[in-house]
Computed example of a mutant assay.
Amino acid sequence: MGMQAVLQMIYPPQCLSCDAFVTSDFGLCSRCWRDTPFIAGVVCDGCGQPLPGGEDGGGPLYCDDCLRIPRPWARGRAALVYRDNGRGLVLALKHGDRLDLARPAAGWLARAGAAILRPDMLVAPVPVHWTRLVRRRFNQAAVLSGALARAQGLDHIPDLLHRTRRTPSQDGRDREARFINMAGAIHVTPRHRDRVQGRHVLVVDDVFTSGATLAAAAEAALAAGAAEVSVLALARVAKEV
């Protein structure tokens, strides 16, 4: 019997979200899997919002928000809807120091982003201001982007983007106020500008809400010479369809 099998007999793998035993490491039990709203089926090509209907018609479809609001990025996806256990997993990573969630989350992100991932992509996280980084000790978006890049064999620059000012919390702000709050707050780190030139950049975040933060990040990459930007989030606040 191999050492791994012995260890699993002594310490059976447990669900990522509860204490239930599961058959393999980094898995969800059947109840937690059922309560985790993975995004599947027809989605908006711009932001990953689930769309009604079972067929995509062979071409890209867009939600009302993406038709109404110009997006600086080309395509976007998200792995989970930000509710129920999807919200719980994001908060566990962000505030509960559950860095072990990065490995399965990378798989969920890869599956959700299969249509937009390219072998020549440069992956970068949405940055946090250094004052928040000191308090939180890590950037959850960088944890996710690093795990995804390693799993997919993509170039990763965790400090490609930086926040030039500490923006107030987006909580409680309407859509317009969120975009105003983020305007001009993110730039490409000067020493990495040459690496952005002509590249397709994938910006990764933990939660997509209005898209204001991702828009600021995408605009910064494009201003530095990126050929194109796509966005990928672990979870998104989605409208009911």
Rank of each mutant, 00 (worst) to 15 (best):
V22T: 15
H95F: 11
G41Y: 09
P104N: 06
C66V: 13
I10F: 04
A124M: 07
R103K: 13
D155R: 03
A218R: 02
D206W: 02
V204P: 02
R118E: 14
D64Q: 08
W108D: 01
G41T: 10
V207P: 00
D174K: 08
D100A: 10
A74T: 14
I10W: 06
A223K: 15
S145F: 04
G46P: 06
A221K: 01
D64R: 14
G59S: 10
G146P: 07
A217F: 06
G113M: 03
L144I: 04
F138E: 02
H200C: 04
D35Y: 04
F208D: 02
V123W: 01
M3R: 13
G146A: 09
R236G: 10
C44N: 13
D25I: 08
R68A: 11
I157V: 15
H162R: 15
A79E: 06
Q14F: 02
I157K: 04
F208H: 11
L61P: 00
V81M: 14
I180H: 11
A78T: 07
C63G: 07
A215V: 02
H129M: 00
V241N: 09
P72I: 14
V134M: 06
Q170S: 06
P70I: 02
R77L: 06
R68Q: 08
A110S: 15
D194T: 14
L117Q: 10
L148D: 10
G57P: 00
A106D: 04
A216S: 12
Q8G: 03
L160S: 05
H200M: 11
A151P: 00
M3Q: 10
C44Q: 11
D84Q: 12
P70M: 02
D155Q: 10
L222R: 11
R111T: 12
L80K: 05
V128P: 00
V6M: 15
A183Y: 08
V231K: 02
C18H: 07
A223P: 06
R178M: 05
L161S: 08
W73H: 10
I10Y: 03
F38E: 12
D155G: 03
A233R: 00
I180K: 14
